[in-house]
Design a protein around this nucleic acid. Structure first.
Length: 155
DNA sequence: GCCAACGTTGGC
DNA sequence: GCCAACGTTGGC
């Protein structure tokens, strides 16, 4: 497979796991994604890809930091753990359903880029950008190099 | 294969 | 806490 660096945006609820948590632990397996589209994007990730770390379900939703993909996709262990809230009884070791990647901390933004500010640049970013598309709840999505640059220029 | 019911996401 | 939008499940 090829290899040009690609870019992604990944959402997390900060009460669950924030950019500060990632800064503390360094690298974290991105457990719990149970949406096929999001899973498929993680399967496309390659080590070194850039990740915008987005805080959802919080007072000021927006991009709070930068991370990078630290491993290729592999089966999410929580799907096999009966006691996990991410347990999936239909998943087996032979046929896992859910994959994840490990994500490594890069840096925290000097100031968060709030969602409503991002919306203000919808035209430049492209109306189809899933983050600002109405009704879209995708938690892992691709970001083009141009979008990456435009978003970080707002920092 | 349709679609109602249900659960979840996530902004507000 | 509310609720719109969406995805999944399961009855038929």
């Amino acid at each position: 497979m090829s290899t040009r660096k690609r870019y992604w945006l990944m959402k997390s609820e900060p009460t669950d796991f924030s950019i500060d948590d990632l800064a503390r632990v360094g690298t974290e397996p991105w457990t719990g994604v149970r949406n096929y589209q999001a899973r498929n994007f993680m399967r496309q990730m390659q080590v070194g890809d850039g990740v915008l770390f987005y805080h959802s379900n919080t007072e000021v939703p927006g991009i709070y930091g930068i991370a990078e993909v630290a491993t290729p996709a592999y089966p999410d262990p929580t799907q096999f753990q009966k006691k996990s809230k991410y347990f999936d009884e239909k998943a087996t070791r032979e046929q896992p359903r859910w994959d994840l990647v490990d994500v490594r901390y890069v840096r925290t933004l000097s100031r968060p880029i709030p969602l409503d500010e991002i919306r203000g640049h919808a035209e430049a970013l492209g109306e189809e950008f899933a983050l600002i598309r109405k009704g879209s709840r995708l938690s892992v999505m691709p970001v083009t190099a141009a979008q990456w640059k435009r978003l970080l220029a707002l920092e």
